[in-house]
Design a protein around this nucleic acid. Structure first.
Lengths: 191, 191
DNA sequence: CGATCGGTTGATATGAATCAACGTGCGTGG
DNA sequence: CCACGCACGTTGATTCATATCAACCGATCG
């Protein structure tokens, strides 16, 4: 566990290398993954402004983290307000992502949700590194997919098998391969 | 319709009076309510930074809206950066609300989701106006509740009947009355 | 007075959860 | 090096929560 809920931290964290995820855990054990963290991501924009955060973070791979004192960040903001503008804009991106996920969870079927998640992640991966032949590093277990889209791992397994049988995607050994991107978009594009 | 998706607007809107809601509509007709707008709410913090918004807004009651030129808002920001800080903080609140809703939609059952929505709304109403005896103005139709929590209106009706039979809440004539707040929290508090 | 809208209720269908068994690969300790 | 346990995924049978379909009711309104 990299960070736990209700902890108070003086620091703002940035993921420099590796993958992680941020999640919210309910007292009865259920947990909802809020987003996956890729290199370059702030844990959450919220952490710049609030010292107590109500989410937890775990690593998916080996990770590198960089920490900045919150006071330091805020000092820099007051000197050069451009930083604050940049932060505000990254907050906008965070809001939009959360609201799209909200829509997916509220309206989409199991297949659609999983397709949406895969699309969303492949785009983020592609934005950060060169990919070839639609092959993406993908260190999630089916349990993580389940916790992100609100399904059980066994149902995730069934849907992925279906996608595999239909020749849409293949997922094994930490590699996601998208054979039929157009079809994946048709299912999960959230237009 | 107060504002439609993919429209470009030079203005940032503020709801001054009445109720509305912001939603995302899918091409096949499904729609997800992202949040309800109460007096004093910006339509969305996103609108301060982006001219194209990917949501729509509708009124629930008679409403009063105030519009500010985005250029005007941004000019003021550059003069007094305190405004930007305030906006950033309200963005944080928006992110947190969206993520809680994400959790509710991903993990909660029908009863829990509806209880959560009612709790969340009553708190927001109470923060804005004096209420007595746990009676809250509540201009939503069951269809709106359904679109907010990702259920069908008929199932919403069943769950509300259940709540009514159990003496937890009553909802009619635009008034929500919470008879048993403790029980409502037990069901939907999202701790 | 009929039409429409919002809500209720019952019967049935269905998507996803649950329960359970099994396979496979892998790390660990003997 | 082997044997065991464990994590992860798959698959089948069954159950359950919610959707769907349909009828009906009361209020409101032209």
């Amino acid at each position: 566990m990299v960070a736990a809920r209700n902890q108070i931290s003086e620091d703002v964290f940035l993921l420099c290398g590796g993958w992680g995820f941020r999640f919210f855990q309910l007292p009865d054990g259920r947990s909802q993954i809020l987003n996956f963290l890729l290199p370059g991501d702030l844990f959450s924009i919220v952490s710049v402004f609030e010292e107590r955060f109500n989410y937890s973070v775990k690593a998916l791979t080996e990770i590198q983290i960089s920490a900045m004192r919150r006071t330091e960040v805020q000092a820099r903001i007051s000197v050069s307000p451009g930083i604050l503008m940049a932060l505000a804009k990254s907050g906008v991106v965070e809001v939009e992502a959360a609201e799209r996920m909200q829509t997916a969870l509220g309206q989409y079927s199991a297949e659609e949700r999983i397709a949406y998640l895969l699309l969303h992640l492949t785009r983020r991966i592609a934005a950060r590194s060169v990919t070839r032949e639609q092959r993406y590093p993908f260190p999630l277990r089916q349990q993580h997919i389940a916790d992100a889209v609100g399904l059980t791992p066994v149902h995730v397994s069934r849907v992925l098998s279906l996608f595999r049988d239909r020749g849409i995607v293949g997922l094994s050994d930490g590699i996601l391969q998208v054979f039929h991107p157009h079809e994946l978009e048709r299912i999960g594009s959230l237009n």
